[in-house]
């Protein structure tokens, strides 16, 4: 994931740390929103593809999550969207600046965790794919 365009309203690192750890499903949602704006079903599809069909969200659960993530200001619903093929009947969501920071912090946390596992010889990060030391 790209260490994204630092938002002007960058919150402090301490504030982001309060949101850690991020729930696995929340992490999937935030990851999917990191690079593009998506609507409800777009998210269902993106997460399904990201997990090779292992996680298929049902609408009520998805929206409970979206509501929670909005309350904690990690994502936001956008009224006008720049997404290609935008459909005005559907609402689109994007990651907030805080969301980006939290996502990064969570990734950092996970990397430390994985390194620890690697150090114990439980996994070999070299072949884990995608995660570099």
């Amino acid at each position: 994931m790209s260490s994204s365009n630092a938002s002007p309203a960058l919150r402090s690192h301490e504030e982001a740390l309060r949101h850690l750890p991020v729930k696995p499903v929340d992490l999937l949602v935030m990851l999917s929103l990191a690079s593009e704006e998506l609507h409800g079903y777009g998210l269902v599809k993106a997460i399904q593809e990201r997990t090779n069909g292992q996680v298929v969200l049902v609408p009520t659960n998805l929206y409970a999550m979206l509501r929670r993530l909005q309350q904690t200001e990690l994502i936001v619903r956008c009224d006008a969207t720049a997404a290609p093929n935008a459909d005005d009947r559907r609402r689109y969501y994007r990651l907030t600046g805080l969301g980006h920071v939290v996502l990064q912090a969570e990734a950092e946390r996970l990397r430390n965790l994985l390194s620890a596992a690697d150090g114990q010889g439980l996994i070999d990060l070299g072949s884990a794919g995608g995660v570099s030391r």
Binding site: G40, Y41, K45, P59, R90
Partner: peptide, 16 residues
């Protein structure tokens, strides 16, 4: 509005 959004998502998923 919220419910309609959820229904829309549901409909999309079912159609696909």
């Amino acid at each position: 509005v919220e419910r309609e959004e959820i229904v829309q998502c549901f409909e999309d998923a079912v159609v696909h």
